[in-house]
Design a protein around this nucleic acid. Structure first.
Lengths: 245, 245
DNA sequence: GACTATTCTGACGCCGCGACAACAATTGAC
DNA sequence: GTCAATTGTTGTCGCGGCGTCAGAATAGTC
């Protein structure tokens, strides 16, 4: 079963070809804009063939989301292994999030689809698990950093707050701000010019609030983030390009 | 034009009747589950009549969202006028958010619809503005508290962080955590048992991180939140029931 | 080259949105 | 009270999209 026939390889290739065609449609025209007829037409295959690869439209979306989350996971992984205090690694994750939302904006948009009622539910358990797993792995990377910080005695977790629960806060603030800045009708008119830098400040404040050493002022924090960005971005680009041939 | 004919009143009444019927369908079966035929059937009116009230399905959703956001706005308003230090008022808003997500869970779910691509865009500018306005009013209430804290010298804003930008952080963490805890596949399995209390801790940490006086430890913060809840919940229930006859 | 298994095809059934022409009710003028 | 004119209501129709399936085509096997 290791050896695949030419035909089987062809089919496997086509699966990713479908996704390659579907992604930009979904990004620009939304779920309703992605019609199976249109997709089949652009693929120059019959609709039935598409249905041999994905049992419905929702499955295609979930497959695309899985691809995007895979990129995020890689970015996180790379951020998690840099040298230095745990707090710096935590900030590196922040930089990774910034990179992801800015330079993989489409992927970030894709990730949102999965939270839509009626897309998740109509997909197969197999694909759901793939995504759940990826999310858990991301979580594990961040929680690992927190636990390491505790071990290194750079951080004391408050009574009644597990490592994962601390992560949850960061996840929430990053996720929340990114969704809001992408979908809120009128952020600029509210006086928020540059959401990314605002979030940097909030994350720094939160870390300071937990007395996570080394405690930093905003100038220092920003400086370190810039240094991390310079160091990590080349790696990030490689990852991004690896996943987008 | 102030005086409405009986017929006109009847029609106006029917508009809210449509929304009353549509909400539970949308909540339980999603946007795709809400069909105009079904809605018309349950209303015991012809489909065309529904279209006299709303020019398309998306408009119905936006109208429902506006209703829900109105409740949120009222809750915020009530939280913003309590006596005491600004920080307490800020915490009262947190309590309001908790109440909203817990006891107006459907409304919270409704609010998410508006961020969906293809729903916002297909609605009339008039309804869009209604929602934008409500969002801005909520924002204004919170920003007002921040500004008051600065005036009272209970808080010093960091260089390069406007009041609205501080608000944005809180908005993000609250919004983010609530969305995540409602839609993330497997939060409990990740070790987050009670998202609400976790968020209380993070908000408290954030406020402490900004040195917003009176600085509080988690025990005190929790105690104050409980006291606020006890004080505000009766008012909140009134608001909720007022909007749901 | 014949025969089987697998893959591909596109027409079809069904459903839902939104339009619209025909029809009913209400209003206002006299 | 009668009769337009206006306003409101109806439900059928066209269009387009999803997912299916019987049959055509192709690949694989001996």
């Amino acid at each position: 079963m290791v050896e695949l026939t030419r035909k089987q390889r062809e089919i496997e290739l086509r699966t990713s070809e479908i996704l390659r065609i579907a992604r930009p449609i979904l990004i620009s025209d939304g779920f309703r804009g992605l019609s199976m007829d249109r997709l089949a037409f652009q693929m120059e295959y019959a609709k039935g063939t598409i249905y041999n690869h994905f049992k419905n439209k929702e499955e295609i979306v979930l497959a695309l989301v899985a691809e995007s989350m895979e990129i995020r996971r890689s970015l996180f992984e790379q951020s998690g292994i840099i040298q230095g205090p745990a707090r710096l690694r935590m900030m590196a994750l922040g930089v990774a999030c910034e990179f992801y939302t800015q330079h993989c904006a489409d992927d970030f948009a894709m990730e949102q689809w999965v939270r839509q009622q009626g897309i998740w539910d109509k997909s197969s358990e197999k694909r759901q698990n793939l995504i759940r797993q990826c999310e858990e792995q991301c979580m594990a990377i961040v929680a690992g950093i927190v636990r390491d910080a505790v071990l290194r005695q750079e951080l004391v977790l408050p009574e009644s707050l597990g490592a994962e629960e601390l992560v949850f806060g960061f996840w929430a603030i990053n996720y929340g701000s990114q969704v809001l800045s992408h979908t809120s009708p009128s952020l600029p008119s509210l006086g928020i010019s540059n959401p990314a830098s605002v979030i940097r400040i909030h994350c720094c404040t939160l870390l300071n609030g937990f007395h996570w050493n080394p405690v930093m002022d905003y100038a220092r924090s920003n400086q370190e983030s810039e240094a991390l960005a310079e160091k990590l971005f080349p790696v990030f680009w490689t990852i991004k390009n690896r996943n987008r041939a």
